[in-house]
């Protein structure tokens, strides 16, 4: 299996603050990989190290086996890091032309890419008049137009309207699935990540807290929802493993093997159970639960 991005024992310290702390992660080539985490978790630092913008304090990172920041690896990468910015005197077309010259790309379809991200009508406008959403779109075109093997996107849809978000999401999925581009995507929009990503890693305080396929992560945090009365009695039996879910239901954080014993105990305690159903956690639930367990939330 080809590894697109690999970080081994990566540490980046800014004074006494460790943005990445003995951080290790392996992202396989192919598909869309989500990187989640609260502000300051180390997502942008990871990307900046991968792109050679920042040097690690210790440890190593590589892209397709070549050291991060090395031009051999960077030739295969397109990126949009944080809110993209551009020289204000350049138009959108000039910006892409300049970047094509910089990377030695002779056959870039600049007009086609501007159309594809919805900037065809603003191609010859100076970027200093662009809205945040338009800058994001241009950043996406800049990341993709040289046909890289890996694209790193940091909050690609922030500042966009819902229609724009949907459009860009479809574009990312299209490129990843049809053209085999590996996409690494950091986003605070968990719904976006759930819809787009195959695998995710959740970061907290500069470390990977959990990592895996989206389906496996949500399935691993399945909970039993009981509609029962009296609810207080159910909560008393469950203790710390129970949480109220509305006025007449409780979510039990137990494994499937524990369920029969629990139901028996509740019936013996005089609880009337009208419904018992397993409920898979959504990505937001997994995210919040993971951060809670790691002490970050």
């Amino acid at each position: 299996m080809t590894i697109a991005l690999e970080a081994v024992a990566l540490t980046k310290a800014y004074g006494s603050v460790r943005a990445l702390d003995d951080f290790s992660l392996s992202i396989p080539a192919g598909g869309v990989f989500g990187v989640l985490g609260p502000n300051g978790a180390g997502k942008s630092t990871l990307f900046r190290i991968a792109l050679g913008l920042v040097r690690p304090t210790s440890g190593s990172a590589s892209l397709f086996g070549a050291p991060a920041g090395d031009m051999t690896s960077l030739r295969k990468v397109g990126a949009m890091i944080e809110t993209p910015r551009y020289p204000p005197y350049l138009t959108a077309r000039d910006t892409l032309s300049m970047l094509a010259l910089e990377s030695g790309t002779r056959d870039a379809d600049i007009s086609g890419w501007l159309d594809r991200v919805g900037l065809g009508g603003a191609a010859d406008r100076a970027t200093n008049g662009f809205s945040v959403g338009m800058k994001q779109r241009l950043g996406l075109a800049a990341a993709f137009f040289t046909r890289p093997e890996l694209v790193i996107l940091d909050e690609p849809t922030s500042g966009m309207d819902p229609a724009g978000i949907q459009e860009i999401r479809a574009l990312v999925v299209d490129l990843a699935r049809k053209e085999g581009v590996t996409v690494i995507l950091a986003s605070h929009q968990l719904d976006e990540v759930r819809r787009v990503c195959d695998r995710v890693a959740i970061l907290s305080k500069g470390k990977v807290v959990t990592e895996g396929a989206v389906d496996a992560l949500t399935a691993s945090q399945v909970r039993l929802r009981l509609v029962a009365s009296p609810v207080e009695q159910v909560l008393a039996v469950l203790g710390e493993k129970g949480a109220a879910d509305g006025p007449d239901a409780v979510l039990a954080d137990i494994s499937r093997s524990e369920a029969p014993a629990l139901i028996r105990a509740l019936v013996n305690a005089g609880v009337e159970i009208t419904e018992a159903r397993w409920r898979e956690a959504d990505l937001e639930g997994v995210y919040l639960q993971t951060l809670k367990s790691s002490g970050a939330a």
């Binding site: 050679g52 960077l74 020289p87 970047l99």
Partner: peptide, 9 residues
């Protein structure tokens, strides 16, 4: 705008 350029050269 260095972040636009440094990954390209």
């Amino acid at each position: 705008t260095w972040r636009l350029l440094t990954p390209r050269n």
